[in-house]
Design a binder for these strands. Structure first.
Lengths: 139, 139
DNA sequence: ACAAAAGTGTAGTCATTGCTACAATCTGGG
DNA sequence: CCCAGATTGTAGCAATGACTACACTTTTGT
């Protein structure tokens, strides 16, 4: 099993799915705090396109994981760990988006695809994308 | 809501998840049939790294969706629709993998990342990847 | 100051994808 | 032929993420 995990890419993809939500949410919290000063549940619900109930439960889980802090009826804040994860996620998001744009993908498509792709871009691929951006530039 | 769906990339990603499984499984069925003559539940379980129970249930769903055909204790076959989806998925998979390799990503990383990325590569991005492969070639 | 409105939490449901444990079927070797 | 082992199916549980409906705070406007 653990042996197969090392060789089966599907397992990697599945375990990635678990952290995708965390990455998306801490990034969203970070964005919203920087734009509006504080991040409320309803802001996240609007941002993610889900009901406030879904947000509440996911935030509760992220709090258990030590990524965010909040109290009932209060705004959501990032912990230090949450800030770190948000920074990493945002940077990767930006690299992937810039890369797709540099590739010549129309902006609307690039934004859509980046949202799905970013969570599956490993360090090696990210590094190659950055190299491409530095050397080729737009074309 | 439906208005927001058009503008919220996260909704796209979520609905993509539903079809990812279908794509992965029809592609796996196709591969296994071509390699060994027939595709059994246990082959899929090994290929995907999950228990046979998970496979059985997913295959049942894909049968409802008209992508595969099977009877109890019998091998799994693809329908015409399943073959079509498998062909599309495999081609996209190959393009993404070739693209990452052309980018200079080490093979092991490229294979891993392709597995996660492929499902989120839209037509426009796929087209740009193919163009890159045709024009730049390896570099 | 206080009621209405806005925002948030809770209860309960559903679908998906995992799992283990156990039951049923198929198949091959003796 | 027939049973033991391999394969497949079924039952039942857990976690995640989605929802509606309803309850509870907080905020706001008069």
């Amino acid at each position: 099993m653990s042996n197969r995990a090392l060789h089966n890419p599907f397992m990697k993809v599945r375990s990635d799915h678990a952290s995708e939500t965390a990455e998306d949410y801490v990034e969203a919290v970070s964005d919203i705090v920087h734009r509006t000063g504080e991040c409320r549940v309803k802001d996240l619900a609007g941002h993610m396109g889900v009901s406030h109930v879904t947000v509440t439960r996911i935030i509760a889980r992220l709090q258990d994981e030590g990524l965010v802090e909040t109290e009932p009826y209060r705004p959501v804040r990032l912990t230090a760990a949450g800030e770190r994860l948000a920074a990493i996620s945002r940077r990767r998001h930006e690299v992937v988006l810039a890369f797709l744009l540099a590739l010549g993908v129309p902006e609307a498509d690039a934004r859509r695809d980046t949202e799905g792709i970013e969570h599956h871009v490993g360090p090696a691929t990210l590094e190659r994308m950055e190299t491409f951006l530095r050397t080729r530039e737009v074309q």
